[in-house]
Write a protein that binds this DNA or RNA. Structure first.
Length: 769
DNA sequence: CTATGTAAACAAC
DNA sequence: GTTGTTTACATAG
């Protein structure tokens, strides 16, 4: 189709221009916003239901609304005077009761805020809304991307899968800013996507998903959207080769597959390759296998058969199934893509984002519901003390990025996610930044700009924890390479199916390697595993590589920390999966977290190649350190990297405390959480840190989060254009509470709301008023 | 610049 | 011919 010489195949995803500004076309009418009410009926109902139910349980004045985009997520508007703890307790109970199927994430927002606000600016416009609405929206459409984040975010709770779903949404929130933003996006989506049916209903039903069994093979159908999917089958899948390879490999129990099987799997699952694609696609597959460090080649014991595996640290265990599901729900993207193409006019189309792959993906798109979406009762006002927020992932695509904060967990939430809200773009720039409490520390130094660095870290933060630590510790900077071997971390053994895997690169260059020894670093290494013989052979290989490396081309891309982009999914089911991360030691949930973390980065994103020094790759890496980023990442933080940071416009945020975050939420100490009347307060206030309390202790000193002092960092920086607000997100699944910062910029406003202190939640969310 | 896709040259089996 | 690696280049963001 595409005939471009070079790229015969073009991914559609890229194609779609953002409607954003142009949007006009797309949604002209629609977007204009439908009043919330109008939205999907189904949604509405759902929301109502929820509300009702909630209302029962909770003190009066509390409004609960289903999050428009996030499944299993509700936005809870809490009056100032309400007893937060009790509410949290109630929500927690509720969430638990509901289990994965029900709402398990709650974004807490204080409503009365308006009152509080002295600020003057309450937005008028919005105000108007207040009265109006009572209802809200609901689920539906979430933006897809969110899911990913979700994963990330999600702690390990129950099953990841569930989480994902739950969280998936990420998001959330309700933030609806003003109309503008929201509408467009989502509405648009809705309409355009047509998700409709499939997604919506199913969404609610997520449950199904939960158990998905997915045979991976057939995933397509699972959803039922088969038609859509099928249609798409003839088209090039929206997944990168790297993603497809991962899907293929992860579809097996042992998580390993021969090249041939990979080809077969892909052909089976994506007819496009079987029937339409040029033969060269196989070459591309091979190319990807060789290029990305996350793919590790193992040789069978006898040495005759080579299996390709995914480096545990990088493996998110994504399966097509999972991705597919997620997409459905939350995002309609795929759907969109598929359908859209045909249906929508170009303008209308959204761009597809590469699902899995792109690094940028780290960013999670967040969608905000349209403003309307939330509605609180008029009467209710919440002060906002709470910040609630949400987070989860979201999608981001738009213009901005949101970072997701990790769960509160331990120390830090710090993670921020940057999201870009894709859709919204046009509308408004609303950004969310999640920050943990501490978060902020920005990376002072660096300009942050680079996302990448961030990326890696950013999301990861969580993940890394374990790995990171280890690395850190191990590394230090230099751990001898020897140490590396330690890698054991990677749980290779267990995880790795193959008994004796020999990885090409044993040395691992990645991580360390680059720097280290000149020696070879073959791609992957799991040292322990390989047999001697292999080692030798490997060595040879390595040598070659080294040479090459010297050269510059793209070499294998090293793993990096994860990113999120991908659809997240976390694995779920996989038996094996479970542990890999042995390392995780720290966390209680380790596994999941870890996994997430690692995975995040992993899979899709290519790890950064950090490049060896030499390597051809340009890694931009700022971090010279490690090539292997993925592991290393954390440390970085220490170093000043930011992990999670949000990148604010200017900068970024800081790092995560890394590990901290990971810790676990389980104990969330919500109790003491302060509520903030206005977003502004939040900003000013220190993070409350959950972390501090409970975790603080836990957190290693080193880890320390910059938080307190630092707050400003972010803020200031942010201030420039944005405003920040904070919110709390209660994830009952995880028992975690997270705080996030929302960075919101209003189009209309010149100033940042923040800057003006005036800002109130209501401004952001009219309904609250 | 980076990530990704494609093509192709080579090398080892 | 298959499998792996690399290099080179193109394209989109």
């Amino acid at each position: 189709m595409k005939t471009s010489p070079r790229r015969p195949l073009i991914l559609k995803r890229r194609r779609l221009p953002l409607p954003v500004q142009d949007a006009p076309r797309d949604t002209p009418e629609e977007e204009p916003k439908r009043p919330p009410a109008q939205e999907e009926p189904s949604q509405v109902q759902a929301s109502k239901e929820v509300a009702e139910s909630n209302s029962c349980k909770f003190p009066t004045g509390i409004k609960i609304i289903n999050h428009p985009t996030m499944p299993n997520t509700q936005v809870v508007a809490i009056p100032n005077n309400a007893d937060i703890q009790s509410i949290i307790t109630a929500l927690t109970a509720k969430g638990k009761e509901s289990g994965s199927s029900g709402p398990n994430k709650f974004i807490l927002i204080s409503c009365g805020g308006a009152s509080t606000h002295p600020s003057g600016r309450q937005p008028q416009p919005q105000t108007s809304n207040d009265s109006k609405r009572t209802e809200i929206i609901t689920e539906i459409l979430g933006p897809r991307p969110a899911t990913r984040d979700a994963n990330v975010l999600r702690p390990p709770g129950p099953t990841l899968g569930q989480r994902l779903e739950n969280c998936a949404g990420g998001d959330t929130t309700g933030c609806t800013l003003d109309n503008s933003l929201t509408n467009i996006q989502w509405l648009e989506k809705m309409s355009s996507d047509g998700l409709g049916s499939c997604s919506i209903k199913q969404e609610m039903e997520e449950k199904e998903n939960c158990h998905p069994e997915q045979s991976q093979v057939k995933m397509e159908e699972p959803s039922g959207t088969s038609t859509c999917w099928q249609d798409s089958m003839s088209q090039r899948p929206p997944y990168s080769y790297m993603a497809m390879i991962q899907f293929a490999i992860n579809s097996t129990e042992r998580k390993r597959m021969t090249l041939k099987d990979i080809y077969t799997w892909i052909e089976d699952h994506f007819p496009y390759f079987k029937h339409i694609a040029k033969p060269g696609w196989k070459n591309s597959i091979r190319h990807n296998l060789s290029l990305h460090d996350m793919f590790v080649r193992e040789t069978s014991a006898n040495g005759k058969v080579s299996f390709w595996t995914i480096h545990p640290s990088a493996n998110r265990y994504l399966t097509l199934d999972q991705v597919f599901k997620q997409q459905k729900r939350p995002n309609p993207e795929l759907r969109r893509n598929m359908t859209i193409k045909t249906e929508l006019p170009l303008g209308a189309r959204r761009k597809m984002k590469p699902l899995l792959p792109r690094v940028s993906s780290y960013l999670v798109p967040i969608q905000f519901p349209v403003n309307q979406s939330l509605v609180l009762q008029p009467s209710v006002k919440v002060p906002l003390p709470l910040a609630a927020s949400l987070m989860s992932s979201e999608l981001a695509r738009h213009s901005k990025r949101v970072r997701i904060a990790p769960k509160v967990s331990a120390l830090c939430f710090s993670q921020l996610v940057e999201c870009v809200t894709p859709f919204t773009l046009p509308l408004l720039p609303f950004q969310l930044l999640l920050a943990d409490e501490g978060i902020a520390p920005l990376p002072p130094a660096g300009p942050v700009k680079e996302e990448k660095p961030l990326l890696g870290e950013g999301l990861l933060p969580l993940l890394p924890v374990q790995s990171i630590k280890e690395e850190e510790t191990q590394h230090g900077e230099d751990m001898p390479q020897l140490a590396r071997p330690i890698k054991v971390e990677s749980p290779p053994l267990e995880e790795w199916p193959s008994p004796c895997p020999s990885f090409k690169e044993e040395l691992s260059h990645s991580w360390e390697d680059s720097s280290c020894s000149p020696t070879p670093r073959p791609k992957k290494s799991y040292s322990g595993l390989k047999s001697p013989a292999r080692c030798v052979s490997e060595m040879l290989v390595i040598k070659r590589r080294e040479k090459r490396e010297m050269s510059r081309s793209r070499r294998k891309q090293h793993l990096q920390p994860p990113c999120l982009d991908e659809p997240e999914l976390v694995f779920s089911e996989g038996p094996s999966t479970s542990r890999r991360v042995t390392e995780a030691p720290l966390l209680a949930e380790p596994v999941s977290h870890l996994r997430c973390l690692q995975e995040e980065g992993g899979p899709f994103k290519t790890p950064i190649k950090e490049t060896l020094p030499i390597s051809s790759t340009p890694s931009k890496s700022i971090l010279p350190k490690t090539p292997e980023s993925w592991r290393l990442t954390p440390p970085a933080k220490a170093e000043g990297l930011d992990f999670s940071p949000v990148r604010t416009p200017q900068g970024t945020f800081g790092s995560l405390p890394d590990s901290l975050g990971l810790m676990d939420l389980s104990t969330t100490p919500l109790k003491s959480i302060p509520l903030f009347d206005s977003p502004r307060e939040l900003l000013n206030s220190e993070p409350f840190d959950l972390a501090s309390d409970p975790f603080s202790s836990s957190s290693p000193s080193d880890l320390e989060v910059p938080k307190p002092g630092s707050p400003e960092l972010q803020v200031p920086s942010l201030s420039a254009n944005r405003s920040l607000t904070e919110g709390l997100v209660l994830d009952t699944m995880n028992d975690s509470l997270s705080k996030i910062l929302l960075d919101i910029s209003f189009p209309g406003l010149e100033e940042d709301p923040l800057s003006s202190d005036n800002i109130t939640w209501s401004q952001f969310i009219p309904e609250l008023r």
